[in-house]
Design a protein around this nucleic acid. Structure first.
Lengths: 260, 260
DNA sequence: CGCCACTTTGAATTAGCTCAAATTCCGTGG
DNA sequence: CCACGGAATTTGAGCTAATTCAAAGTGGCG
């Protein structure tokens, strides 16, 4: 399915800069974790934001609702669901502690997706006009805001790439890797993770059916990439996170292709 | 392939707000066109930015390059190509006059994709630190910036939804609709458009092979949704833009499903 | 004019979908 | 405490949309 994007010879071969270090390294995770904690502390100090406890299924905001607030997640797990006006629903993003919600509403004055809690959590509400006002005086706050938006843009591109270039098994593996990595960056244990989503939700997010998700998970378990814990097959152990990454990469370069 | 994102009953049925008016209306297009012109004028006046003429294949920036600039497109057609470090390439965005480039670099201090010109065009270069500095004094400039980032986020979600929920034919139709609409919003003619991309590039962007793109285009032509002009089947006439939209929606609700 | 990249189309293959059935799990109420 | 019912999951079998592989056609450009 993978079609090279650029057919003419790349004219950049000589000058391509070194890529930044791959994410997922322990110290990188620590850095992110600290960064999130500092961000939340700063927001807390600057805004003393309204805190709201949400439960699974609660809506933070919904499509078409007038935009006025940004939200920052202090805890919990959230999904963003796009609705097209012909009735399609699409999970377009997953959000965790430290993430911002609501950027999609800025441009059009109304939110363009539903933000739904997938578990109990705490959401901080910030008035956008207030955020802007405080940003004027505090460049470090504006920096935070822009970084969050920038990260969201990059992350969504990665999602698109995953959906467009990976097989079903690799997509599921990549999803698990992403989920575990997101936990790791927030200082949570990753050897034993609880999927907060049904197979149907995962399938929707990854562009495949729930049966395919189930089969892929079974296959990943069979080859030892994951183990099911507990009884309801929502608890998963990932013995070696880097093995998942390797699995994704192997599935991209099928034959005995050795690079370099 | 479409899996509902939310399986439990939505608890939002009563209060769901009206969706904003569908895009693509003539006056909406005019509004956007004017907005783009004003934006460019403002940037011109504020920054007197360095202008650079680019040609097909030129790189504006590339993955891993240190972030320092944002770019605004005055003319031309551009693609954003994500590179994964296992060698996959993915077209993750298309950019036109008035669009900004480079947001992806803010978070990590380095760009995370390649920005490539697909045709001759003019790019304005803005130093990010300068943008921030001027934003402090001019709220309207900051508003522009945030709206551009927000639009990019929403647009990418739409891409993901398209790839995840539509058949190959519908995806190609939706791509043509998006392209034509983007031209319309910039005051360009849309009855007769020139695809700046090869079938391979389109296929990469849409998550399908070049052969499938070719077949889909042939089918769309056979049923009269498009016509090929010229000889080298890059020139396309779209007799009725709204027919394309209908085609996409029909393909989503296959049987004689009448809503309401 | 001839090469090379792009495109189209066909034929065979396959990954993932659809449909179906069995199983497990969990909350609820008796 | 246990029985029950609905939701989620798994697995199988057959099917289909899209892929892969192949070949031929076309056009632009040096």
């Amino acid at each position: 399915m993978f079609t090279p994007a650029v057919t003419e010879p790349r004219h950049v071969a000589p000058g391509r800069p070194e890529l930044p270090p791959a994410p997922g390294l322990p110290d990188e995770n620590q850095r992110v974790s600290r960064h999130i904690a500092e961000t939340l502390a700063l927001l807390q100090a600057t805004f003393a934001p309204q805190r709201r406890i949400v439960h699974a299924g609660d809506l933070i905001y919904q499509t078409g609702e007038r935009f006025a607030h940004l939200y920052v997640l202090n805890s919990g797990f959230f999904k963003l669901v796009n609705l097209s006006f012909d009735g399609r629903e699409q999970v377009v993003g997953l959000k965790f502690r430290g993430d911002w919600l609501g950027f999609d509403g800025i441009a059009g004055g109304a939110y363009t997706c539903d933000a739904v809690a997938m578990d109990t959590g705490e959401v901080w509400t910030l008035r956008y006009d207030q955020v802007l006002a405080r940003c004027a005086a505090r460049p470090e706050l504006l920096k935070l805001l822009h970084e969050a938006m920038s990260r969201e843009i990059s992350r969504e591109r990665d999602s698109l790439m995953s959906v467009c270039t990976l097989s079903a098994d690799a997509r599921v593996a990549d999803f698990l890797r992403y989920w575990a990595e997101s936990l790791a960056k927030r200082g949570l244990r990753t050897d034993q993770i609880t999927l907060r989503m049904t197979r149907a939700e995962i399938g929707n997010y990854l562009g495949m059916t729930l049966e395919t998700v189930s089969r892929s998970l079974s296959r990943l378990a069979r080859i030892g990439m994951i183990e099911f814990l507990g009884k309801g097959r929502r608890e998963i152990r990932i013995p070696r996170l880097d093995a998942l990454t390797e699995f994704v990469q192997r599935s991209v370069a099928p034959a005995g292709v050795t690079l370099q």
